[in-house]
């Protein structure tokens, strides 16, 4: 099986064309990117709002739990049945997966900024938008990046199932391989997804370190 995988990877024909590894990798990244982007557009403002005002904390927690409990494959199948085949159903399913970790990170980051610091910002004349942009978000950055990192990893892993509804991505190797009893190809898919996840995780960890030097210790 390992040999099958290696010979698949060694075959130059598998590295070109619309079904080649670079193309599949590109599709995989593209869906994931769209999903994380859309999820951030939803979750960041919402998390900032809840963290800054404290309004809706309870709703946040229960809604995240519901979202986390949803089975992605089921959702996607349902969405395909409702909306037809296309980019939208799998991306929506991925967005639903990405929202809870991002929301949790942003909310926790903003809500955990030391109240005295926010109080000082307000007392010296910052309006709320400035408090958010200049004080809360910079201080929340480590937790926000943590949430984002979790979301990206889950989306990369789950994007595999987009292939189930004929959308390509690295999942194609797995589903095609399964259909053809070609376990070498299945392994190719699995290994590539894992490698992608590990590489992205490393890059994000690096980014988090660059953006949050140790000066972010809270004073006193």
């Amino acid at each position: 099986m390992i040999n099958d995988m290696l010979s698949y990877l060694g075959d130059a024909a598998n590295w070109t064309g619309t079904a080649g590894i670079p193309a599949r990798l590109g599709e995989h990244l593209w869906y994931s990117f769209l999903a994380v982007l859309a999820a951030s557009i939803i979750a960041v403002p919402l998390g900032v709002f809840i963290g800054h005002t404290g309004v809706g904390k309870v709703i946040l927690v229960s809604a995240s739990n519901v979202l986390r409990a949803l089975p992605s494959l089921g959702i996607m199948t349902l969405l395909v049945l409702l909306m037809g085949v296309g980019l939208l159903p799998p991306v929506i399913a991925l967005v639903l997966i990405a929202v809870p970790p991002i929301l949790a990170g942003v909310y926790a980051g903003v809500a955990n900024v030391e109240p005295a610091v926010v109080d000082a910002a307000r007392a010296i004349g910052m309006k709320d938008s400035r408090i958010i942009l200049q004080v809360e978000l910079p201080l929340a950055l480590p937790l926000i990046l943590g949430g984002l990192r979790g979301a990206i990893l889950q989306v990369i892993a789950t994007a595999t199932i987009a292939a189930y509804v004929n959308l390509g991505g690295l999942g194609r190797y797995i589903f095609d391989g399964l259909a053809l009893y070609d376990y070498g190809q299945v392994l190719v898919g699995a290994v590539l997804v894992t490698a992608l996840a590990l590489v992205l995780d490393g890059l994000l960890a690096l980014l988090a370190r660059v953006l949050s030097p140790d000066r972010r210790l809270v004073s006193r």
Partner: peptide
């Protein structure tokens, strides 16, 4: 905001921005 920008305020615990 206008009011506070015209009033200097030294907080009891300094209240500096850690970042």
């Amino acid at each position: 905001v206008t009011l506070r920008l015209g009033i200097g305020y030294v907080l009891q615990n300094a209240g500096l921005f850690p970042h």
